[in-house]
Amino acid sequence: MAIATLTSKGRITIPAKLRASLGLRPGDRVQFVSLKNGSFEIVAATCSVRALKGLIRKPSKSVSIEAMAQACPSS
């Protein structure tokens, strides 16, 4: 079990083994997810842009810049 201490500024250091397990590097973000039983789960909130590939389908019909401009007129 890993234990961390909260500083007076509200900061904690995630133990090295947990950082490695989550694949965290300096500058990465983590998300604290509230679970139904009142506990929390720490999840790595950053991922490579490459992980997003294929997430959104390619449109069947392309849209022109002019059509986009008409759909969102400026104020």
Score class of each variant (00 low, 15 high):
Asp28Asn: 15
Ser60Val: 07
Leu22Ala: 01
Cys47Lys: 14
Ser8Phe: 06
Ser75Pro: 13
Cys72Lys: 10
Ser62Pro: 11
Lys58Gln: 09
Val63Asn: 02
Ile3Arg: 12
Ser48Asn: 09
Leu24Gly: 00
Ala2Cys: 14
Lys53Asp: 12
Phe40Gly: 01
Ala16Phe: 05
Ser75Leu: 12
Leu22Ser: 02
Glu66Pro: 00
Glu66Gly: 03
Gln70Glu: 11
Asn37His: 06
Thr5Pro: 02
Thr13Cys: 07
Ser48Glu: 15
Ile56His: 07
Met68Ser: 02
Lys36Gln: 12
Ala51Val: 04
Leu18Asn: 02
Ala51Phe: 08
Arg57Asn: 10
Gln31Tyr: 08
Val33Asn: 04
Gly38Cys: 11
Leu24Ser: 03
Ala51His: 09
Ser48Phe: 05
Ser74Val: 11
Met1Ile: 06
Ala2Pro: 02
Phe40Asp: 04
Ile12Thr: 04
Met1Arg: 04
Gln70Pro: 01
Lys9Ser: 13
Arg11Cys: 09
Cys72His: 12
Arg11Gly: 00
Leu22Met: 14
Lys53Phe: 14
Ala45Gln: 09
Arg57Asp: 15
Leu24Met: 05
Ala71Asn: 00
Cys47Pro: 00
Pro26Ser: 14
Ile56Leu: 15
Ser39Trp: 03
Gly23Asn: 03
Pro26Leu: 11
Ala67Ser: 12
Gly54Glu: 04
Arg19Thr: 06
Ala67Cys: 07
Pro15Cys: 13
Ser48Trp: 06
Phe40Cys: 00
Val49Trp: 10
Ser34Phe: 05
Thr7His: 06
Ile14Gly: 01
Ser21Ile: 01
Gly27Tyr: 06
Pro59Arg: 00
Ala16Tyr: 09
Ser34Met: 07
Arg11Leu: 12
Gly10His: 05
Ile42Cys: 03
Arg57Ser: 14
Glu66Gln: 10
Ser39Ile: 01
Lys53Ser: 15
Lys9Gln: 07
Gln70Asp: 11
Arg29Cys: 05
Val33His: 03
Ser8Asn: 09
Pro15Lys: 08
Pro26Phe: 08
Lys61Cys: 04
Pro26Gly: 12
Cys47Asn: 07
Ala69Met: 13
Ala67Val: 08
Gly23Arg: 03
Arg29Lys: 15
Val30Met: 02
Ser21Ala: 15
Leu22Gly: 00
Met68Asp: 01
Gln31Pro: 00
Arg19Gly: 03
